[in-house]
């Protein structure tokens, strides 16, 4: 009896300790980014594209990378949702009786989730060379879509798995078809989880540098068409951080701060939208 109490206390302590460590690490990262970056962060930085000599500490900003990153990640997230949602629903509704097949599909997706993004980038690059395509927004969006699709499908899948059997039965017993059950019942039940899946995918997409390095390229201009190259914030950080000039290095931190703020704002907005639908959810 006593031993079990001690055990509980030990694990509670370990849990609190790890929560504390994670919280501390997060704060440390945010602190280092903002303390080094805020000094260089100004209106010009987020409202202008790089001027001549920007990378040597002269005038200009990173609007090209901000817009490029938003185009790439939002484009890819929308595409991944449009492709991934039907697949995740199909796995949970049409294949619900084929457990072995579903397990194989899940395993494959989990492996794809774990593949490093540079592999996606290199693969995309090889395909682009084969077809003679130049680096472009389009190519970047496609490669990021491929990168985040397994994340999107698997996180949606986990959400749909939690739909109570009784709700599924209720839907079918009203005479719903499988698609009606999928799109009218499952999707509504899962809106908050859907938001999480989208955010996970978006976060991975907007923060990734390796996959877009060879595929979307880099430019000081804001792309106005899908076949033009696009800059990204992670690459902007990477290039500026590699500079020997301290002022440019600080701008890298400012760019990182911008990236962090964008992710934060999107997350909060999405949560607000998700919570609006939370109240319809039927508890298991």
């Amino acid at each position: 009896m006593k031993l079990r109490k001690v055990e509980e206390h030990v694990f509670l302590f370990l849990m609190r300790l790890s929560a504390l460590l994670i919280g501390f690490a997060l704060l440390a990262i945010i602190w280092s980014i903002f303390s080094k970056g805020l000094g260089s962060l100004n209106w010009q930085m987020i409202s202008e594209v790089p001027k001549g000599g920007y990378y040597f500490g002269k005038e200009g900003g990173i609007l090209n990378a901000i817009i490029g990153s938003l185009y790439l990640s939002l484009g890819a997230t929308v595409l991944a949702l449009v492709i991934g949602l039907p697949i995740a629903l199909f796995i949970n509704i049409h294949l619900s009786k084929r457990r072995r097949l579903v397990n194989v599909v899940r395993l494959i997706l989990d492996i794809l989730w774990g593949v490093p993004s540079i592999v996606y980038g290199a693969f995309g690059f090889t395909v682009m060379i084969f077809f003679g395509v130049k680096t472009s927004l389009m190519a970047g969006i496609i490669v990021i879509t491929a990168l985040i699709l397994p994340i999107m499908i698997r996180s949606l899948d986990e959400v749909f798995k939690e739909v109570p059997m009784g709700l599924k039965e209720a839907s079918y017993s009203l005479g719903s078809t499988k698609s009606e059950t999928a799109y009218k019942v499952y999707v509504r039940q899962c809106v908050p989880g859907l938001v999480t899946a989208v955010l996970l995918s978006l976060g991975r997409g907007i923060g990734d540098a390796a996959s877009v390095l060879f595929t979307s390229g880099y430019t000081d201009n804001i792309p106005t068409a899908l076949d033009q190259p696009a800059a990204t914030l992670p690459l902007a950080i990477f290039f500026q951080l590699g500079s020997p000039i301290p002022e440019v290095q600080n701008r890298a931190y400012a760019a990182a701060a911008v990236l962090t703020i964008i992710i934060l704002v999107i997350s909060i907005l999405a949560r607000i939208v998700g919570n609006k639908y939370q109240k319809n959810k039927i508890k298991a």
């Binding site: 009784g166 709700l167 039965e169 209720a170 017993s173 009218k184 509504r188 039927i282």
Partner: peptide, 11 residues
């Protein structure tokens, strides 16, 4: 169908 526990639709 009325089940043991009511399951309204999520709407």
């Amino acid at each position: 169908l009325l089940s043991q526990r009511p399951y309204p639709l999520p709407m």
